[in-house]
Computed example of a mutant assay.
Amino acid sequence: MKSYGGRHRTVFLVLLRVVWTAVCAAVLVVSGVAWSTVSTISTGVERSYAIPDDVPRSTSGRNILIMGLTTRLDLHGEPLPDDVLRRMQAGESDRGGYNANTLILLRVPVSGPAVAMSVPRDNLVPLASGGEGKIKEAYGRAKIAEEERLRAAGQHDPRTLERAGREAGRRAQVRTVSAFLNQPVDHLVEISLIGFFHIAEGLGGVDVCLRAATKDPLSGADFPAGPQHLDAGQALSFVRQRHGLPDGDLGRTRRQQAFLAAVAKRLKGADVGVVRAMADMAKQDVVLDAAFDLAEFTTNLPSEVRFETLPIEGGARVGGLDVNRVDPAKVQAKVTELATAPPPPPPDDGVPCVD
């Protein structure tokens, strides 16, 4: 598939290029912003202990797992305001569950360009909790199991259950992806669906380009062909649409990458005030692992990021569900290839056109 690259000036921008995303991760700052701003973001964002201190670590760089959740709830499991849900055009608060519909392994080498590897969400893989399932399901299954365990032990406080359940979900998702890719995970970034909306809203919308007109009532997508500016609600529909696309979910992955490339392009021209406002917004939506030292990370920030989508073998029907057949050996070989010698990104030639 085509990859999208561009020059980045900051950690904030790098993570935005690879999160919903995502987005992915909308948590840091542009270069030139005062150190006090970095410190404020670092101490204000939600932290996770899902990656133990004693797990294996990368030796020639760092692997950051970026997880985009489908939930329409906030970080405490509370419903979003009705007016926000209406503008998101993503249905009611009880939709979506806790699937990790976006999974990106961001490989940041000691030197040279970084590579963001998208893992198709419907890959049929062994799950950390046991058995097989779609890779996106590791989070939600573990969350439910942990909450049931705690209820059986007498715990009924909703926020305690939500926090413990999400931590179990993060642990399971990290272990599942790490085993499937045969790569250690050094850090994690989690962002929910509202994060995509907040990113686009904070920027006043984004510019995208479509090869053909498209309409999908399930996602709310209704776009003409060609270059166009999308508001926050439209942008969320743009990244959520999969019905009516030539490649289905893989087409949606390219949509997400194009959206993040558009965010990066917009941020390049943004002033410090806009970035600070978005950083404050990110605290509502983003979770980082406890060991993610943002200040240290800024000292070795890559200037380039390339997107890749990891291979699948084709579709299959298993237990009444549509899944992706995968060859773990081929996937792991591709990851190793990209992690050890990522190709240079293409020139930054503006907003890419996608299906």
Rank of each mutant, 00 (worst) to 15 (best):
D216I: 14
D289W: 10
V27G: 11
E148P: 00
R57E: 07
S192F: 08
A235L: 13
F223D: 03
T336D: 04
R175H: 05
L16D: 05
S3A: 09
T59K: 15
C24S: 14
G140V: 11
Q257G: 02
A282W: 07
R17V: 01
D83Q: 15
D285S: 14
G68S: 01
L28H: 06
E46W: 13
Y49I: 03
Y98L: 15
T309D: 04
A333Q: 10
L288Q: 06
D157I: 05
M117F: 02
L75R: 12
G44I: 08
E308S: 12
R171A: 10
E337N: 03
L230G: 03
H229S: 08
G77L: 01
G320P: 11
G131I: 06
V351L: 12
P342T: 04
W20M: 11
P126G: 01
C24T: 14
A277W: 03
D293W: 11
R317L: 13
H187K: 08
E132C: 01
V23R: 04
V19W: 05
T102D: 14
D222Y: 13
L267F: 07
G6V: 08
A116C: 02
S48D: 06
R163I: 08
R107P: 05
D355K: 07
S48N: 08
S93D: 09
P120Y: 09
Q155N: 00
T21A: 14
Q89E: 06
D122E: 05
G77M: 03
D289A: 11
E146I: 01
G68V: 00
R325D: 00
R151N: 00
N300K: 14
L188F: 05
A138T: 04
R141M: 02
D216N: 15
S129D: 00
V33N: 11
L15V: 06
L28I: 02
H187C: 07
Q241L: 04
T59M: 10
G202A: 13
E148L: 08
R62I: 13
A145T: 06
P120Q: 07
G269P: 00
I312F: 07
A179F: 02
H229L: 02
P217E: 11
V286W: 05
L13M: 06
E148K: 08
